[in-house]
Design a protein around this nucleic acid. Structure first.
Length: 753
DNA sequence: AGGGAACACCTTTTT
DNA sequence: GGTGTTCCCT
């Protein structure tokens, strides 16, 4: 697509033609803000106002960054690769690695995730001889995170005089991070601020270099990020921020709505452009979105509108329970192209019922977020090995792997090692790396520590130019797959599969990294400017950084034929032809925890609803169930108040009807049957084979060899053998997708086909 | 030192 | 309902 300002509407064009000075673009959902950003960047380049590396664009996700670069490339060609585009955290990490010597950390510092932070918080609490049951690690972590969102150091907190008991622990936590050569997420911003504070000359050079600064999703920036942007754009004031206060959904992560509401005050002479025309959704959907968000008080004055025709009405669907809800959604999804469909929910736990129904109906799906690949135990183990090798002072990772697989280094040995290390003012590896005789433990554990030391040295000496060989060495030296096999019985297969998946990821990375190094070589060679050249980071450190800063949405690509499932939070920035929002019930959405004292939590839930609604292009359904079992208890929830806020004129109400005698289902509107079949026979048998009050079953065998069955997770299969009866009845089923599984009938929700 | 069972806890959203 | 933690037994 060529640069063509005539293709923009007047407001879009005004924003794209803005040159110097602060600019606030209030961009409603679906109003073409990315188009505007891309046009503006392309124009600045084509008119020679900036060279690509003089433009800094900060996005909310890596995926958004990639898309921005892609679309710029379509207009200006490969020079787009020289733009600085990334997330706040990615930019922070890049700057910190560049200037680590000023900060007293190493270039290969570790990035700690939320879990790691919690472990460190816990250590700090116990080191202070406090009881983690009384002062919960979460409390300390949240305190520290909040402080960092606000860019407050322990000294600042002390000066404020708040939380006297937590401040020294915050200080101890900071010391600990330094000792481990580690940064947490907050540090990736606050330590850049620190860097600039300590080196005004350096800040000045970056101000000169980044002649134009752009920030997307500005409504979701926190105070520290605001400070960073203010510093960077401080000289020239060429700061363009894009945002929508109605889509601010991350207050709990420190996002500060104030940043966007007060932009004009913060940056004098700011021009403000409102993009209010929606190009995404049908008229009824836009009207629904407006009906909801108009109930919020604290917002900039603007109204989304559209030229589009009204389209279908917005469906509000009442179902009996969450399974009924799932059945309705899946039946609807199956009617068209499932690839056009997205299902959103408030909490990850809600995905389960929908997934089960999708599996049963053999509709493929992708799930964004939830229990992520990198949170699986086996993956965390292997990544911990890699992290330890990249930074042997990362004691959190060392603690995780030193006895996995079991190699006789138990709690006692580890604790002695730590005590001794602290006595000598170092970390565990500081003690192990030399030739210390380890006389603080008895001969047997000493030998085991020595064995580990030898193993670790071998890995540390390996070339870090590629990740895969390293991973393979670890797997081999530790017999890790055998360990999974012995230790995880039933789950071993899927865990081993995940290990192989990690190897695939590392292989892909290695190939790409190789090419990139090659491409970068001449770019950096002729440039002595420290604001331009990145230090060469080994493949390993780059790989780990990418894992740490990678969000699940970053990997999400539309897959033909697959229904997409995700939380409402993850849906921001995406769009789909047909959207289903499940669980529109008081207590679920809005979530019970958001409805505390002030109305601010509720207003954020409403914005979340607005985000979800505005993702839909053609069709939108909101569902609520009369009863729902959640967290193991049965709840009866009222329909969400947000449903009442939808303008009646755009809504069509649908109530599913469940025949109590046959278990067959239909919807009251137009008698659409949606999959009641296949749901009676087997299930009733199971119901009848219920246990007596004494807990003993009196049923005969439920299944016969050769029966075709469907399992909620494994899909379809055929019973190959049966044994036992009643509670202990077991079957072997050969599933079409996942092969042979042994199942206890009582627990495996098998159904006849 | 290691494994398993009982226990408690907690259930929002995630860079 | 699940997970993580602790404690107790071997």
């Amino acid at each position: 697509m060529p640069l063509d300002l005539d293709s923009l509407n007047p407001a879009q064009r005004e924003a794209a033609e803005h040159n110097d000075g602060p600019l606030l673009i209030l961009a409603g959902a679906g109003s073409g803000k990315t188009r505007v950003l891309v046009h503006r960047i392309a124009r600045l380049l084509e008119e020679g106002r900036a060279r690509p590396w003089e433009i800094l664009a900060v996005t909310f996700t890596n995926k958004a960054a990639r898309e921005l670069v892609e679309r710029c490339r379509a207009m200006v060609g490969d020079t787009a690769d020289e733009l600085w585009v990334g997330t706040f955290h990615g930019m922070g990490a890049r700057l910190l690695r560049r200037h680590c010597e000023e900060l007293g950390c190493s270039r290969s510092f570790t990035i700690m995730d939320g879990d790691d932070q919690l472990k460190i918080a816990r250590d700090v609490i116990t080191d202070a001889r406090l009881d983690p049951a009384v002062l919960r690690p979460e409390t300390l972590r949240n305190f520290i995170e909040n402080a960092k969102h606000e860019a407050r150091s322990p000294a600042d907190e002390e000066a404020r005089g708040a939380f006297d008991d937590l401040v020294p622990l915050y200080a101890a936590y900071e010391r600990r991070l330094r000792a481990l050569d580690a940064m947490d997420f907050g540090d990736l911003i606050t330590r850049v601020l620190e860097l600039f504070r300590g080196a005004p000359g350096l800040l000045e050079r970056y101000q000169q270099r980044f002649r134009y600064v752009l920030v997307d999703e500005y409504q979701d920036t926190n105070h520290a990020q605001y400070l960073l942007v203010s510093r960077l754009a401080g000289g020239h004031g060429n700061l363009c921020v894009v945002g929508d206060d109605d889509q601010s959904i991350y207050a709990w992560r420190g996002a500060c709505l104030r940043n966007i509401l007060e932009f004009e005050r913060d940056f004098a002479g700011a021009e403000v452009v409102r993009l209010e025309q929606n190009y995404r959704s049908s008229g009824n959907i836009v009207a629904a979105a407006h009906g909801v968000i108009a109930n919020n008080g604290d917002r900039k004055d603007k109204q989304l509108w559209t030229d589009a025709t009204a389209g279908r009405k917005v469906h509000v669907v009442t179902t009996t329970d969450e399974r009924d809800e799932a059945r309705y959604i899946v039946a609807q999804a199956a009617e068209g192209d499932p690839g056009d469909v997205a299902v959103f929910y408030r909490t990850n736990a809600q995905s389960r019922a929908i997934e089960e129904e999708l599996v049963r109906s053999r509709i493929r799906y992708v799930i964004v977020g939830g229990t992520r690949f990198y949170e699986r135990r086996e993956i965390k183990d292997l990544v911990a090995y890699l992290r330890f090798i990249a930074n042997p002072r990362d004691e959190i990772s060392l603690a995780r792997v030193i006895n996995v697989p079991t190699r006789g280094i138990g709690r006692t040995t580890w604790e002695r090692l730590i005590v001794e290390a602290r006595n000598r003012d170092g970390t565990a590896w500081d003690l192990l790396e030399g030739s210390d005789p380890l006389s603080f433990v008895s001969p047997a554990p000493r030998r085991r520590l020595n064995d580990f030391r030898v193993l670790a040295r071998r890995w540390l000496a390996m070339n870090r130019a590629a990740v895969t060989p390293l991973l393979e060495a670890i797997l081999e030296d530790t017999s890790y797959e055998d360990h999974l096999h012995d230790h995880d019985g039933e789950d071993a297969d899927s865990r081993i599969e995940n290990v192989h998946e990690l190897l695939t990821v590392s292989q892909e990375f290695d190939e790409e990294y190789d090419e990139r190094e090659f491409a970068d070589a001449d770019d950096n060679a002729d440039d002595a400017d420290p604001t331009r050249s990145d230090p060469v980071l080994g493949a390993l450190a780059t790989f780990l950084e990418r894992l740490a800063l990678n969000a699940d949405v970053d990997n999400y690509e539309e897959q033909g034929g697959h229904v997409t499932l995700m939380t409402l939070h993850n849906s921001k920035g995406l769009e789909f032809d047909r959207v289903f929002i499940a669980g529109a019930e008081e207590g679920v959405f809005p979530h019970a925890r958001s409805m505390a004292e002030d109305g601010r939590g509720l207003e954020e839930e409403r914005r979340l609803c607005y985000v979800g609604v505005t993702r839909a292009r053609r069709q939108l359904s909101l569902l609520h169930a009369s009863r729902r079992s959640l967290y193991g208890t049965l709840q009866e929830n009222l329909p969400s108040r947000f449903l009442d806020e939808l303008p009646a004129a755009v809504v069509e109400r649908i109530v599913t009807r469940q025949s109590s005698t046959r278990g067959g289902m239909s919807a009251s509107k137009g008698a659409q049957a949606y999959g009641g079949q296949g749901y009676s026979g087997a299930r009733k048998q199971n119901a009848r084979s219920d246990t007596t009050p004494a807990g003993r079953s009196y049923a005969q065998q439920t299944w016969a060899e050769g029966a075709r069955v469907v399992h909620p997770m494994f899909g379809a299969g055929r019973v190959s053998s049966c044994s036992g009866s009643g509670d202990s009845e077991k079957v072997e089923v050969r599933f079409d997708q996942v092969g042979l599984k042994r199942l206890v009938v009582k627990f495996a929700k098998l159904e006849a086909v």
